[in-house]
């Protein structure tokens, strides 16, 4: 079993008006096979948490720690984190012109597992994963994220997660921009991968809608760069009813 441990994490970004503090001491511990939902209003720091775990250079860590089974994640480069077993499904996946999906997937798989996958086995794995995400086989010949619809981009993120087999995945607003069918397909994918690999999931979302398909073990409410409340699945139901107003009014 693995543990992703976040302790007293404080993060800022540089803006034109100077340094801006975004995370103000976040504690969160995720074990394998657990699903944690981080919910909160816009601007509460949810995505900052996601990108800081992945190591995006825009964010400066001012204090605290992130460890993966005791290893210092913050000391790792972006690609080292991925090779250590962390995965970020992005809200806005980036277009890479001229690089085909199949070339990209194979290059990433080779990097993560340290050796090139066996060709026949790999082709079978890719086809199977694409079928279960209802992706057309022609997808592999398209350039990464170029001209993809919102739903295709998110499916492509989950496809990578399935093939790269991370230990922990951060899903950053994976539900945004998805219609009901796409949401169901993507959620099924996450549940299937978790069942097969014991993946630990950090699910970042503004809406409770995706939690009907992916059942969280723990729910954390993020407000103003801190966790304002924690609970089980019932907390999500309450947010569905009441929204985030109560936290914002309380001025947490």
């Amino acid at each position: 079993m693995s543990v992703l441990d976040i302790k007293d994490l404080r993060v800022s970004i540089e803006t034109e008006q100077g340094k801006k503090e975004i995370l103000r001491g976040v504690d969160l511990s995720i074990s394998s096979d657990e699903i944690h939902a981080v919910m909160g209003p816009n601007g509460s720091g949810k995505s900052t948490l996601a990108y800081t775990i992945a190591g995006h250079p825009r964010y400066t860590v001012d204090g605290g720690s992130i460890t993966l089974d005791g290893e210092d994640v913050l000391a790792m480069s972006v690609d080292e984190r991925a090779r250590a077993g962390l995965f970020l499904a992005m809200q806005y996946p980036v277009e890479i012109p001229g690089v085909t999906v199949s070339n990209f997937l194979r290059t990433a798989k080779t990097a993560v597992s340290g050796e090139a996958p066996r060709v026949r086995e790999w082709i079978g794995d890719v086809r199977k994963a694409m079928e279960s995400l209802r992706m057309d086989s022609s997808f592999g010949e398209r350039n990464v994220n170029e001209g993809f619809s919102g739903g295709e981009k998110k499916r492509h993120e989950i496809l990578q997660m399935e093939l790269l087999r991370p230990r922990f995945a951060v899903l950053d607003e994976t539900d945004s921009g998805l219609d009901v069918d796409a949401l169901r397909i993507v959620s099924e994918g996450v549940n299937r991968i978790k069942a097969e690999t014991g993946l630990g999931v950090l699910l970042i979302t503004h809406y409770t809608r995706i939690l009907r398909y992916i059942k969280p073990d723990h729910v954390h409410v993020f407000v103003n760069g801190r966790i304002a409340e924690q609970g089980g699945h019932e907390l999500a139901d309450r947010l569905e009813e009441e929204g985030y107003d109560r936290y914002l009014k309380a001025g947490v």
Binding site: S77, V78, D79, A82, V94, I96, V99, N103, A108
Partner: peptide
């Protein structure tokens, strides 16, 4: 960042981007 976040080392990521371009 996108390529590196998938485990691809920086030099290889740069190569992919240039060749892709």
């Amino acid at each position: 960042f996108y390529l590196q976040s998938r485990g691809i080392e920086e030099e290889e990521a740069r190569r992919l981007v240039v060749i892709g371009f």
